[in-house]
Amino acid sequence: MKFQTVTGVLDCTPDRLIVAGWTGRDRAAVDHHIEELAAIGVPAPSTVPLYYQCAPALLTQEPEIQVLGHETSGEAEPFLMRMDGRLWIGLASDHTDRALETHSVAASKQICAKPVADRLWSLDDIEPRLDKLVLKSWILENGDWTAYQEGTLSSILPLRQLITGAELVDGSAMLCGTLPALGGVRPASDFRMSLIDPERDQAIDWRYRSSTLRIIS
Protein backbone atom coordinates (compact mmCIF):
# COMPACT_ATOMS: atom_id res chain seq x y z
CA MET A 1 0.00 0.00 0.00
CA LYS A 2 1.08 3.57 -0.64
CA PHE A 3 0.29 6.53 1.60
CA GLN A 4 0.80 10.26 1.15
CA THR A 5 2.49 11.80 4.22
CA VAL A 6 4.13 15.09 5.13
CA THR A 7 7.50 13.46 4.38
CA GLY A 8 6.51 12.00 1.01
CA VAL A 9 5.14 8.65 -0.12
CA LEU A 10 5.21 5.80 2.41
CA ASP A 11 5.18 2.43 0.65
CA CYS A 12 4.60 -0.33 3.16
CA THR A 13 2.64 -3.46 4.03
CA PRO A 14 1.74 -4.06 7.68
CA ASP A 15 2.36 -7.60 8.89
CA ARG A 16 -0.17 -7.47 11.73
CA LEU A 17 -3.73 -6.11 11.81
CA ILE A 18 -5.83 -5.44 14.88
CA VAL A 19 -9.46 -4.33 14.83
CA ALA A 20 -10.30 -2.79 18.19
CA GLY A 21 -13.89 -3.12 19.33
CA TRP A 22 -16.03 -1.77 22.15
CA THR A 23 -13.83 1.31 22.36
CA GLY A 24 -16.41 3.92 23.37
CA ARG A 25 -15.21 6.31 26.07
CA ASP A 26 -18.63 6.27 27.79
CA ARG A 27 -18.53 2.86 29.49
CA ALA A 28 -22.21 2.97 30.48
CA ALA A 29 -23.18 3.50 26.84
CA VAL A 30 -20.90 0.65 25.76
CA ASP A 31 -22.48 -1.71 28.30
CA HIS A 32 -25.96 -0.68 27.12
CA HIS A 33 -24.97 -1.40 23.51
CA ILE A 34 -23.61 -4.82 24.49
CA GLU A 35 -26.97 -5.62 26.09
CA GLU A 36 -28.85 -4.44 22.98
CA LEU A 37 -26.75 -6.63 20.71
CA ALA A 38 -27.01 -9.60 23.05
CA ALA A 39 -30.79 -9.34 22.71
CA ILE A 40 -30.50 -9.98 18.96
CA GLY A 41 -27.97 -12.75 19.33
CA VAL A 42 -24.59 -10.98 19.10
CA PRO A 43 -22.19 -12.54 21.64
CA ALA A 44 -20.90 -10.23 24.36
CA PRO A 45 -17.15 -9.45 24.33
CA SER A 46 -14.88 -11.27 26.76
CA THR A 47 -13.21 -7.98 27.72
CA VAL A 48 -13.73 -4.27 27.01
CA PRO A 49 -12.10 -3.02 24.87
CA LEU A 50 -11.34 -6.10 22.77
CA TYR A 51 -8.56 -6.42 20.20
CA TYR A 52 -9.66 -8.69 17.35
CA GLN A 53 -6.85 -10.26 15.33
CA CYS A 54 -7.34 -10.07 11.56
CA ALA A 55 -5.24 -10.85 8.50
CA PRO A 56 -3.29 -7.78 7.29
CA ALA A 57 -4.08 -8.85 3.71
CA LEU A 58 -7.62 -7.55 4.36
CA LEU A 59 -6.34 -3.97 4.14
CA THR A 60 -7.03 -2.52 0.70
CA GLN A 61 -6.95 0.76 -1.20
CA GLU A 62 -9.01 -0.59 -4.09
CA PRO A 63 -12.15 1.44 -4.93
CA GLU A 64 -14.32 -1.69 -4.80
CA ILE A 65 -14.51 -4.69 -2.49
CA GLN A 66 -16.50 -7.90 -2.85
CA VAL A 67 -18.71 -9.20 -0.06
CA LEU A 68 -20.79 -12.31 0.46
CA GLY A 69 -24.52 -11.61 0.72
CA HIS A 70 -26.45 -8.41 1.30
CA GLU A 71 -25.99 -7.92 5.05
CA THR A 72 -22.65 -6.10 5.24
CA SER A 73 -21.92 -2.49 6.09
CA GLY A 74 -18.99 -0.14 6.53
CA GLU A 75 -18.07 1.99 9.52
CA ALA A 76 -15.52 4.79 9.60
CA GLU A 77 -12.70 4.44 12.11
CA PRO A 78 -9.38 6.08 12.98
CA PHE A 79 -6.55 4.00 11.54
CA LEU A 80 -3.19 3.72 13.30
CA MET A 81 0.02 2.30 11.90
CA ARG A 82 3.49 1.98 13.40
CA MET A 83 6.25 1.81 10.81
CA ASP A 84 9.99 2.28 11.31
CA GLY A 85 9.41 3.47 14.85
CA ARG A 86 6.93 6.18 13.86
CA LEU A 87 3.19 6.32 14.52
CA TRP A 88 0.77 7.46 11.84
CA ILE A 89 -2.95 8.17 11.93
CA GLY A 90 -5.33 7.79 9.00
CA LEU A 91 -8.78 6.56 8.12
CA ALA A 92 -10.26 3.13 7.43
CA SER A 93 -13.58 1.30 7.29
CA ASP A 94 -14.26 -1.78 9.38
CA HIS A 95 -16.56 -3.34 6.80
CA THR A 96 -18.43 -6.11 8.64
CA ASP A 97 -20.81 -8.96 7.84
CA ARG A 98 -23.80 -8.28 10.10
CA ALA A 99 -25.41 -11.68 9.58
CA LEU A 100 -22.24 -13.51 10.58
CA GLU A 101 -21.80 -11.13 13.52
CA THR A 102 -24.62 -12.89 15.39
CA HIS A 103 -22.54 -16.09 15.34
CA SER A 104 -19.02 -14.67 15.77
CA VAL A 105 -17.91 -11.04 15.85
CA ALA A 106 -14.32 -12.09 15.11
CA ALA A 107 -15.38 -14.07 12.05
CA SER A 108 -17.62 -11.23 10.82
CA LYS A 109 -14.63 -8.90 10.78
CA GLN A 110 -12.21 -11.36 9.21
CA ILE A 111 -14.52 -12.13 6.28
CA CYS A 112 -14.60 -8.56 4.90
CA ALA A 113 -11.90 -6.39 3.33
CA LYS A 114 -10.92 -3.22 5.23
CA PRO A 115 -10.68 -0.17 2.93
CA VAL A 116 -7.97 2.31 3.95
CA ALA A 117 -7.50 5.91 2.79
CA ASP A 118 -4.22 6.74 1.04
CA ARG A 119 -3.19 9.61 3.32
CA LEU A 120 -1.59 9.62 6.78
CA TRP A 121 -0.85 12.28 9.39
CA SER A 122 1.93 12.06 11.96
CA LEU A 123 0.36 11.11 15.29
CA ASP A 124 2.95 13.16 17.18
CA ASP A 125 2.06 16.27 15.19
CA ILE A 126 -1.68 15.97 15.70
CA GLU A 127 -1.84 14.41 19.17
CA PRO A 128 -2.49 17.66 21.12
CA ARG A 129 -5.83 18.04 19.32
CA LEU A 130 -6.83 14.40 18.74
CA ASP A 131 -10.13 14.71 20.59
CA LYS A 132 -11.16 17.57 18.28
CA LEU A 133 -10.78 15.53 15.11
CA VAL A 134 -14.14 14.89 13.45
CA LEU A 135 -15.11 11.52 12.00
CA LYS A 136 -17.89 11.41 9.41
CA SER A 137 -19.39 8.91 7.01
CA TRP A 138 -22.17 8.78 4.43
CA ILE A 139 -24.01 6.00 2.61
CA LEU A 140 -25.77 6.14 -0.73
CA GLU A 141 -29.48 5.63 -0.16
CA ASN A 142 -32.18 6.02 -2.80
CA GLY A 143 -29.71 7.84 -5.04
CA ASP A 144 -28.64 10.41 -2.41
CA TRP A 145 -25.74 10.59 0.04
CA THR A 146 -27.14 10.24 3.57
CA ALA A 147 -25.23 11.15 6.74
CA TYR A 148 -24.42 7.88 8.51
CA GLN A 149 -21.95 8.76 11.27
CA GLU A 150 -20.66 11.98 12.79
CA GLY A 151 -18.75 12.85 15.94
CA THR A 152 -15.35 13.63 17.38
CA LEU A 153 -12.64 11.27 18.55
CA SER A 154 -13.49 12.33 22.11
CA SER A 155 -16.16 9.60 21.92
CA ILE A 156 -13.48 6.94 21.46
CA LEU A 157 -11.00 5.80 24.12
CA PRO A 158 -7.72 7.76 24.00
CA LEU A 159 -5.65 6.37 21.13
CA ARG A 160 -2.54 6.06 23.30
CA GLN A 161 -4.54 3.78 25.61
CA LEU A 162 -5.53 1.61 22.64
CA ILE A 163 -1.94 1.55 21.38
CA THR A 164 -0.76 0.26 24.76
CA GLY A 165 -3.59 -2.24 25.11
CA ALA A 166 -3.02 -3.66 21.65
CA GLU A 167 0.77 -3.75 22.05
CA LEU A 168 1.09 -2.01 18.71
CA VAL A 169 4.62 -2.94 17.68
CA ASP A 170 6.51 -1.91 14.55
CA GLY A 171 4.82 -3.23 11.42
CA SER A 172 1.37 -3.25 13.03
CA ALA A 173 -1.84 -1.51 12.01
CA MET A 174 -5.05 -1.01 13.98
CA LEU A 175 -8.60 0.14 13.37
CA CYS A 176 -9.62 1.93 16.54
CA GLY A 177 -13.39 1.64 16.90
CA THR A 178 -16.23 3.70 15.60
CA LEU A 179 -19.23 5.94 16.28
CA PRO A 180 -22.94 5.02 16.37
CA ALA A 181 -24.77 4.87 13.06
CA LEU A 182 -27.35 7.59 12.61
CA GLY A 183 -30.65 5.82 12.09
CA GLY A 184 -29.16 2.44 12.91
CA VAL A 185 -26.72 0.06 11.22
CA ARG A 186 -27.83 -0.88 7.72
CA PRO A 187 -26.23 -2.13 4.52
CA ALA A 188 -25.29 0.13 1.61
CA SER A 189 -23.16 -0.55 -1.44
CA ASP A 190 -21.52 2.91 -1.58
CA PHE A 191 -19.65 4.37 1.41
CA ARG A 192 -17.84 7.69 1.95
CA MET A 193 -15.86 8.74 4.99
CA SER A 194 -13.75 11.64 6.27
CA LEU A 195 -11.39 12.37 9.14
CA ILE A 196 -11.31 16.14 9.59
CA ASP A 197 -8.85 18.38 11.42
CA PRO A 198 -10.86 21.59 11.95
CA GLU A 199 -7.87 23.53 13.30
CA ARG A 200 -5.85 23.02 10.13
CA ASP A 201 -8.89 22.86 7.83
CA GLN A 202 -7.60 19.59 6.40
CA ALA A 203 -9.24 16.22 5.87
CA ILE A 204 -8.49 12.65 4.91
CA ASP A 205 -11.24 11.43 2.58
CA TRP A 206 -12.01 8.05 1.05
CA ARG A 207 -14.81 6.42 -0.90
CA TYR A 208 -15.44 2.84 -1.95
CA ARG A 209 -18.25 0.57 -3.01
CA SER A 210 -19.02 -3.07 -2.38
CA SER A 211 -20.30 -5.58 -4.91
CA THR A 212 -22.24 -8.58 -3.64
CA LEU A 213 -21.47 -12.21 -4.35
CA ARG A 214 -24.49 -14.51 -4.28
CA ILE A 215 -24.64 -17.03 -1.46
CA ILE A 216 -24.90 -20.45 -3.06
CA SER A 217 -25.56 -23.51 -0.93
Rank of each mutant, 00 (worst) to 15 (best):
T72K: 03
T72Q: 12
S73W: 15
S73V: 03
E77P: 02
E77Q: 06
E77H: 02
E77D: 08
L80W: 03
L80G: 00
M81N: 05
M81K: 01
M81A: 05
R82P: 01
R82N: 10
M83A: 09
D84F: 13
G85H: 06
R86L: 15
W88V: 03
W88G: 00
I89C: 07
G90Q: 00
G90R: 00
L91E: 00
L91S: 02
L91A: 07
S93R: 06
S93P: 01
D94L: 14
D94M: 14
D94C: 07
H95C: 02
T96G: 12
T96I: 14
R98Y: 08
L100E: 07
E101V: 03
E101K: 06
T102I: 13
T102N: 10
H103Y: 11
H103P: 04
S104L: 11
S104Q: 10
V105T: 10
A107G: 09
I111E: 15
I111C: 09
C112K: 00
K114C: 02
K114Q: 01
P115N: 06
V116Q: 02
A117R: 00
A117F: 05
D118Q: 15
L120F: 15
W121E: 00
W121S: 00
L123T: 00
L123N: 02
D125M: 07
E127A: 10
L130D: 08
D131C: 06
L133T: 02
L135T: 00
L135M: 09
K136N: 08
K136E: 15
K136M: 13
K136A: 15
S137A: 05
S137G: 14
W138A: 14
L140Q: 11
E141M: 11
G143S: 04
D144C: 14
W145E: 09
T146P: 06
Y148W: 15
G151Y: 11
T152G: 13
S154D: 10
I156M: 03
P158Q: 13
P158K: 13
P158D: 11
L159R: 07
Q161C: 10
Q161W: 03
I163V: 11
A166R: 07
E167W: 08
V169G: 12
D170G: 04
S172D: 10
A173Q: 01
A173S: 13
M174I: 07
L175R: 00
L175P: 00
T178V: 12
T178M: 11
T178G: 02
P180S: 14
P180V: 10
A181E: 12
A181I: 08
A181C: 13
G183A: 05
G184W: 10
V185Y: 08
V185D: 08
R186V: 09
P187S: 14
P187Q: 05
A188G: 10
S189P: 07
R192S: 10
M193Y: 12
M193S: 08
L195W: 04
D197V: 04
P198E: 04
P198Y: 04
R200D: 08
D201H: 15
I204Y: 05
D205F: 11
W206E: 04
R207E: 10
R207P: 06
